[in-house]
């Protein structure tokens, strides 16, 4: 089976035999990759029971909890990594959650779809409509994405809160990096992934 490329990137940042907490784990794919590739011990956290069922079917440890109400079930510094893959935009209070992730994990990994991508900008500029793009496919009235941001927004957010970014990866819609993405990440980057300690 082909794994999601953005998850493979996250996997490449994770050291073997560590502990990982994956928030919004879906069907448990990231944890599955990490077990296969790095023999980690990990748990996925999900709110959706259908995803819980799939994770259990995938033999992944999964805990049904609502990350919007914090990570109080987890002790401080109890995981080597806490990951939030492409879910930052759906949480109610991103700052609270990131603070909680930093409390629970020694290192955190956050990725999100970049609202500054040219396709979103064009949508709004030319059509005057809320962007509906490959990475953000929902109409404004039924989108789960309530806290969308651009890469620039996120960098300012990290600076304001003294989050120390130690690694960054920006990729295009094909989950690759190229010259354009490197020169104008906020314009050509589709997905941004950050490692923060």
């Amino acid at each position: 089976m082909a794994f999601r490329k953005d998850l493979l990137l996250i996997s490449s940042w994770i050291k073997p035999n560590t502990t990982v907490l994956d928030l919004g784990c879906g069907d448990g794919e990231l944890i599955k990759i990490l077990i296969q590739e790095h023999s980690i011990h990990g748990y996925g956290v999900e709110i959706d029971l259908e995803n819980i069922k799939k994770s259990i079917k995938n033999k992944i440890n999964v805990l049904q909890m609502d990350i919007d109400s914090g990570l109080s079930e987890f002790d401080s510094n109890s995981f080597d990594y806490v990951v939030l893959a492409q879910s930052l935009q759906v949480v109610k209070n991103p700052k609270n959650l990131i603070d909680e992730m930093r409390r629970v994990g020694k290192e955190i990994i956050v990725s999100f779809p970049n609202m500054g991508h040219w396709s979103s900008r064009l949508n709004l500029l030319l059509q005057g409509k809320m962007p509906v793009t490959k990475n953000l496919p929902h109409s404004w009235y039924k989108t789960p994405n309530i806290h969308l941001c651009t890469i620039k927004d996120f960098l300012i957010f990290c600076k304001d809160n003294n989050y120390n970014i130690i690694e960054t990866s920006i990729t295009n819609n094909q989950q690759k990096s190229n010259m354009m993405v490197k020169i104008f990440p906020n314009l050509f980057g589709a997905v941004a992934t950050f490692r923060i300690n």
Binding site: L49, I56, V62, L63, Q64, E73, F74
Partner: peptide, 21 residues
């Protein structure tokens, strides 16, 4: 039930937890 979950998680056990509506 979450108290049990927490205890087992602290022991690094394989554990899944679901809250059925």
């Amino acid at each position: 039930s979450k108290e049990i979950v927490r205890l087992l998680m602290n022991c690094k056990k394989n554990i899944s937890y679901a809250e059925i509506k």
